[in-house]
Design a protein around this nucleic acid. Structure first.
Lengths: 200, 200
DNA sequence: AGATCAACCAAGCAAGCGCTAGTGTAAACC
DNA sequence: GGTTTACACTAGCGCTTGCTTGGTTGATCT
């Protein structure tokens, strides 16, 4: 049994599990359903994962790791202005949220199903991600781009962004880029309407 | 068996169910747990509700009905300016979200557990509520209070507000009134900082 | 006094649950 | 050539699940 998602087989199983967890919810997804989706028998599942909980943890870890690394990339590759950085973060957030959708929906909806141990480990990852946000928000506040309480502003922004998984249609005309732009236009009226060069 | 929550007994049972659904999640809450919390045996539960699904539907219906009527009251009792109306809606939303918390958390998290029939019925209620919001947002856009796409703005705002159930601490110093004020300050920079008289 | 009714209970069924034990097998390694 | 390893299988245990059944109670109404 693997502890992290190192083997490609386990990674693929995790991806399939994420899809089922979104469709049915964690509790309603049985190990037999998971096994069938994976083309194996239910007993064989426990060769790859210690128990059902570990599958959930693997799904959420995968999604959060991706979000974190993409956000870091976006920050590295963008202009140094407060607005460009805010835009890059929002866009990166939306892109992971919408391309890696399943894992993030699971993370949002099934977080409480994690046992204490897994929750502890994963909350550190999530904190690291949120720290990136708080820093970018702070910079935007200092630059006078937006106004308000930093605690509240960051939570309002995260709420607006995370909520998108409930209504966003990836087939529609709006792209993550557009959503990020609209959100910032809404909260940062002082911003220029000139196109941003984000270099990524 | 009652179809709506007319009997006070059923109303009380619904309230208790909401609390358990929040604590444990719908799927993990067994009929035996529900019965124990209610001080009866599990069999007796089915005198009040046809099945477990109906309990969930009752919880969500109760919460949504409350939100709808409180929002209507708030709109009736406030000043006629676009800003006052926006503020009244945000405040009413936060107040139901935070005082009637359990039912709303259930509505947000367990919506997908409803069967097709209940979902159809309840989505009409929710649509009526969201229509109130869209109208207030439209007025704010027309008045130049906020800018942007009406579809996106209303969803961003709803996201920011609904997300509060995940981090808001009712024991803390911030009141729903304050949150509403901060949110509007964030998205409506043109607004005055003078206190609003909302008459309610 | 008799009928009605909501509210509850004890007992249990059929189905499904997560998970385990023990085994088979083909490729990889020494 | 023998051992190990990765992956899969079959069979089923022990338990919990939502829900049903058949019956009792005490209050209310006629």
């Amino acid at each position: 049994m693997n502890v992290v998602n190192e083997s490609p087989r386990r990674k693929e199983l995790t991806r399939l599990a994420a899809q089922l967890f979104v469709q049915e919810g964690f509790d309603r997804t049985t190990v037999r359903m998971l096994a069938q989706e994976m083309g194996i028998k239910s007993g064989s599942l426990f060769h790859h994962f210690r128990d059902k909980q570990e599958i959930l943890a693997a799904v959420i870890e995968e999604g959060t790791q991706n979000a974190l690394s993409i956000a870091r990339q976006a920050l590295e590759g963008c202009e140094d202005s407060a607005e460009a950085r805010l835009h890059a973060m929002a866009r990166a957030h939306l892109e992971t949220l919408l391309t890696d959708r399943n894992a993030h929906v699971v993370a949002l909806y099934e977080w409480r199903r994690l046992d204490a141990e897994a929750r502890d480990h994963l909350s550190h990852l999530r904190d690291a991600y949120e720290a990136l946000w708080e820093r970018v928000i702070d910079e935007a506040l200092e630059a006078g781009l937006i106004r308000g309480d930093r605690f509240l502003v960051s939570r309002f922004v995260m709420g607006a962004l995370n909520w998108t998984v409930r209504w966003y249609d990836p087939e529609g005309p709006r792209k993550p880029e557009d959503l990020a732009h609209e959100l910032i236009a809404m909260i940062a009226p002082a911003s220029s309407d000139a196109p941003l060069s984000t270099k990524v």
